[in-house]
Design a protein around this nucleic acid. Sequence first.
DNA 1: CCTAATCTCTCTAGTACCTAGAGGTTCAAG
DNA 2: CTTGAACCTCTAGGTACTAGAGAGATTAGG
Lengths: 146, 146
Amino acid sequence: MLTIGKLGSAAGVKIPTIRYYEQIGLLPNAERSSGNQRLYSRSTQDRLAFIRHARELGFTLEAIRDLLGLSDRPDQSCAEVDAIARAQLQAVEGRIARLQALKGELERMVGHCAGGTISDCRVIEVLGNHAHCAADHGRDLHAVSE
Amino acid sequence: MLTIGKLGSAAGVKIPTIRYYEQIGLLPNAERSSGNQRLYSRSTQDRLAFIRHARELGFTLEAIRDLLGLSDRPDQSCAEVDAIARAQLQAVEGRIARLQALKGELERMVGHCAGGTISDCRVIEVLGNHAHCAADHGRDLHAVSE
DNA sequence: CCTAATCTCTCTAGTACCTAGAGGTTCAAG
DNA sequence: CTTGAACCTCTAGGTACTAGAGAGATTAGG
């Protein structure tokens, strides 16, 4: 069994964040030691690592709740599971597409900024110029919040 | 001169967000019409477009404040700007790789869910596995919030 | 076994970055 | 001149954390 601190450093998640996830029901209420300190199993560590990575990939906590639901109920009938998986798949595909557009723009920025002074640096110009980024307009700024 | 609504739709930024940017000093206090409505010049539109694109690329408002400050002293080296852009690019590439792993898993799940159960679901394993994401660890979860 | 250092506990409040709504004013078309 | 869209300020809410106070628990060294 791990203490909250060990769990946090193992999964790369801060301690208050773990307690927050417990509070909102994303992690189960932890077992407690005789002195009331939280104790975690290996499976909770996996779950937390999953949450952390899913957050990095831009899923909201609600979406993560759904994804975790898939593995929490492995014998469930497939209709609902399939719907969730398909929805998440669509979201993932959209995220990939937009990240690739961003990647292109960043590459262009890096290419134009080869060590001169700011007056020669095109980073700011590129970022200000709508013509360079036709792809992504009108979209929710936080659809891929990281 | 543009009204706030025109400015917002021109730059792809919501009206309350523009007022919020003014409030926190990211945009200068707008000129006002005789009836106290905000009026914006072309240069403010450029500045807002810059902010919007930088936000999409994952820069925090503080980083954007710095970048806008840098562009006011155009004789400095742009190495710093370049470094920021490179860091963002790396983060985006890592994210794309992990999303593609997840996409593969979700596709597999959708396929499997044709009629059985999901007892063999690997989604958590994929996202829970640190080996799949060596790149990005220990980083601020919000370094690239798009 | 005792102490000091280091966790950990709960609780409240703060952060970043918006977003929505109420209740009122201004502007531009008909 | 009227009507309806767009604007104003202000307050409050939302998500996902993050920090700090003050108190109790645990562990390593002497």
